[in-house]
């Protein structure tokens, strides 16, 4: 099985140095555990993030060097068409450039691969050419899919934690470097949006008891049975759980 792990050009949130995101580290570890040939892939101006991914379990990687302002998707598509991997694993949202999370979808569309989002586990399927994928849903639910290869998956934060970084592994891993000239590649489309420095905006405050119209009940010294009734009624009224058979 051939697996490619996509690595974005993320930066560390504090130091702004190139750094691998946790999701991509999880992706690298997941791919390494899957076995087969596993390669990292990054298109961007530096290979620091790839080097870090090697330390999280990837043995080899491809670095498509492109300039900062160039859209990485065409280069990635060309590379993946040639490499023809069975599985492509990406973080649910890359960081560093647009941060839209669209790249995996664009790749899947161009390569005509199905894409499965929010994956927490990948294991070889029972039949040949298939893979069993576990997807995280709300409230701890999971969906287990058996999918025909090739497939592109994006990783959910609840996937197994990344295997810790090992310096020696990063040192031993090899990165194949390929320089992609900007000429001939369409640069990223001019955005209709104005870009300006980021200003942090506070999130809305979560109000205690929102949705229950400020109702606040205090029962002083009820009998335990009465208390139990009230608790269950509260849980059912607010739709938390249903207990009747």
């Amino acid at each position: 099985m051939k697996t490619v792990v996509l690595v974005s050009g993320a930066r560390h949130p504090v130091s702004r140095r190139p750094a691998l995101t946790r999701l991509e580290a999880q992706a690298a570890s997941l791919a390494a555990k899957l076995g087969g040939t596993v390669r990292g892939l990054h298109a961007g101006p530096s290979d620091d993030q790839l080097r870090e991914a090697l330390g999280h379990g990837l043995g080899e990687a491809d670095w498509l060097e492109i300039e900062d302002r160039v859209d990485p998707v065409p280069a990635l598509i060309d590379h993946l068409k040639a490499a023809a991997p069975d599985i492509v694993i990406a973080g649910r949202r890359g960081e560093g450039t647009g941060d839209t999370g669209l790249v995996p979808y664009a790749l899947a569309e161009a390569l005509d691969m199905p894409i499965i989002a929010d994956v927490v586990g990948v294991s070889p399927g029972a039949g040949s050419g298939t893979v069993s994928i576990e997807q995280a849903l709300k409230k701890g639910a999971r969906r287990r899919l058996v999918v025909q290869l090739p497939v592109l998956v994006t990783i959910h934060p609840l996937a197994p934690p990344p295997s810790p970084f090992a310096f020696a592994a990063a040192r031993r891993g090899t990165i194949r470097h390929e320089r992609i000239e900007a000429t001939g590649l369409p640069t990223a489309k001019p955005s209709p949006f104005v870009e300006r420095p980021y200003r942090a905006r506070p999130k809305m405050m979560r109000q205690a008891g929102a949705g229950q119209a400020g109702e606040k009940a205090v029962l002083v010294g009820p009998t335990p049975e009465e208390a139990a009734e009230r608790i269950l009624a509260f849980l059912e009224d607010n739709g938390i759980r249903r207990y009747s058979a």
């Binding site: 960081e95 450039t97 647009g98 104005v194 870009e195 420095p197 980021y198």
Partner: peptide, 11 residues
């Protein structure tokens, strides 16, 4: 927010 919360897009 964009570019790892370095910049923001407005429009």
């Amino acid at each position: 927010a964009t570019k790892g919360r370095m910049a923001e897009e407005v429009g």
